[in-house]
């Protein structure tokens, strides 16, 4: 079954259509269905995959999407986002530490829609040049100021564009109840966004929430 464009659910397992047939990214399985090559997508390895399995209603990333991906790490999830966005889409992958970047660069070299950026998501000016046409933001940085980081990056979105945000409760405050932490972060987001969905990612990712939100109106940069 095609759950979303380029995202398939077969026997309770998720797959995306491989943008680069024959090439694996993280030791996943490849599968052939109706002349398409599919790559398996593990909920334990990817928060977006787990959010979809937990019932995400709408996926703002579609073929042709121009995605700004903050906290791309070695590109596990980003590669599936790149599959979904497809040839006409684009994924700008921002990562600030050099070690995962070393793996992300060769991945981007193989994927025609992927741009690696070694930069800090707190300083969107550093990568503005690559983001002129961005219309979705995906963020998974596991940082204490995660809501603020997203707000700093809303300048790339127009009214009605959406953002997906993974919130890790532990990294903000190790003692406070995860529920409270999520609520606090969500209330910060309300400044620029309307919250469309919130999901918990249990049992795939402990103390993680996933938020889909929609930009309210144009912000001044």
């Amino acid at each position: 079954m095609e759950k979303f464009s380029n995202v398939f659910l077969i026997n309770n397992k998720l797959y995306t259509k491989n943008l680069v047939p024959g090439k694996k990214v993280h030791g996943e399985k490849l599968l052939n269905r109706n002349g398409k090559e599919l790559r398996s997508w593990h909920p334990y390895k990817s928060k977006l995959a787990s959010a979809i399995l937990k019932g995400l209603k709408e996926l703002p990333i579609t073929p042709g999407s121009k995605v700004l991906y903050l906290g791309a790490s070695t590109g596990t999830t980003a590669s599936h986002v790149s599959d979904i966005a497809d040839k006409n889409g684009k994924v700008v992958c921002v990562e600030y530490s050099e070690k995962p970047m070393e793996k992300l660069i060769p991945l981007a070299e193989k994927r025609s829609n992927m741009l690696p950026v070694m930069g800090d998501a707190n300083k969107p000016k550093e990568y503005t040049d690559y983001c002129q046409d961005v219309n979705v933001v995906y963020q998974d940085v596991a940082q204490p100021n995660q809501a603020e980081i997203l707000l700093k990056n809303t300048r790339f979105l127009e009214k009605g564009d959406e953002a997906l945000l993974c919130i890790k409760s532990r990294s903000i405050n190790a003692v406070e109840e995860p529920k409270k932490v999520f609520e606090k972060e969500i209330s910060k987001l309300r400044k620029d966004f309307r919250i469309k969905e919130t999901l918990e990612l249990k049992p795939f990712h402990k103390d993680h929430a996933f938020i889909r939100c929609k930009k309210k109106s144009a912000t001044s940069p």
Partner: peptide, 20 residues
């Protein structure tokens, strides 16, 4: 995408700088 080449080159350079 002509931006992509530039991005890859820049990222390579930055990794190298960080390492040095």
């Amino acid at each position: 995408m002509k931006d992509r080449k530039k991005a890859i080159e820049e990222a390579r350079k930055k990794v190298k700088e960080a390492k040095t």
